[in-house]
Amino acid sequence: MAQTVLVADDDPDIRDVVGIYLRGEGFRVVEAEDGRRVLELLESEPVDLVILDVMMPGMDGIRTCFKIREASAIPIIMLSAKGEHIDKITGLTTGADDYVAKPFNPLELIARVKAQLRRQSLASGSPRQPANDAVIEIDDLTIDRKRHLVTVRGKEVSLTPIEFSILEFLAGHRGQVFNVEQIYRNVWKEDKFCSDNTVMVHIRNIREKVEEHPREPRYIQTVWGVGYKVE
């Protein structure tokens, strides 16, 4: 059965172009012109991924992303015509998994869609870890790889798929230091690396959710000038 991608943009030309490329790769496509329509479709359609424009009338992409994240961990790729760092940080902080600035290469967007869906499939598929590695426990932090569940001090923490993958990767290599490029290549499973703050924003989001004192992190530690580690 074809996977479904919801394309949300108030520009019908962009929806048409993205839809043509997606359908050419075998995806089923549904479209929305604003955030409210996105939320309606998510309640009635079996959607596997959302492509969400930031600037839309009525309910914009940032507010829509926030509303989606209140109920779902579905992969979200944000689009923005501005291409400013603040837009990217806002989108990722709200819960988006990836961000593409307009104008964009449709083939690159399709590659990012496939990467997100592949990661989602691996996370929800059959366990790839030995039974004794299925659960990682570090002090009050527990990462259940089979159930894709994180608890801190006995309370469940809601992480996006990307956030979970980053935390799982670092915790699975406890004590090892990884720079942002190594984290990107291992989590995003892409050879192409753009030197930006995507990884840092996601790590900041994780800290806000799992750390009791995010500015003095206990789990994900910064090794200045090198990268990050879970000790």
Results as ranks from 00 to 15, higher is better:
K82P: 00
E84A: 05
E84P: 07
H85L: 14
D87Y: 12
K88A: 09
K88E: 08
T90M: 08
G91E: 00
G91R: 00
A96V: 03
D97I: 07
K102Q: 06
P106L: 06
R112L: 06
V113R: 01
V113M: 04
K114W: 04
A115L: 02
R118C: 06
R119D: 12
R119K: 15
R119A: 11
L122N: 05
L122S: 13
S124P: 01
G125R: 11
S126L: 13
P127Q: 12
Q129D: 12
P130A: 10
A131V: 15
A134T: 10
E137C: 13
I138G: 11
D139A: 14
L141S: 10
T142K: 11
I143N: 05
D144P: 09
K146A: 13
K146L: 15
H148D: 08
L149N: 15
G154C: 05
V157I: 11
S158E: 14
P161N: 04
E163D: 06
E163W: 15
E163H: 06
F164Q: 02
S165G: 06
S165F: 07
L167H: 04
L167S: 03
E168M: 04
F169V: 11
L170C: 11
G175T: 08
V177G: 12
N179Q: 04
W188K: 14
W188G: 00
K189F: 10
K189I: 14
E190F: 06
D191H: 08
F193Q: 11
S195C: 12
D196W: 09
D196L: 02
T198W: 05
N205V: 04
E208S: 13
K209L: 03
V210A: 01
P214R: 03
R215T: 04
P217Q: 03
Q221W: 05
W224M: 06
W224S: 08
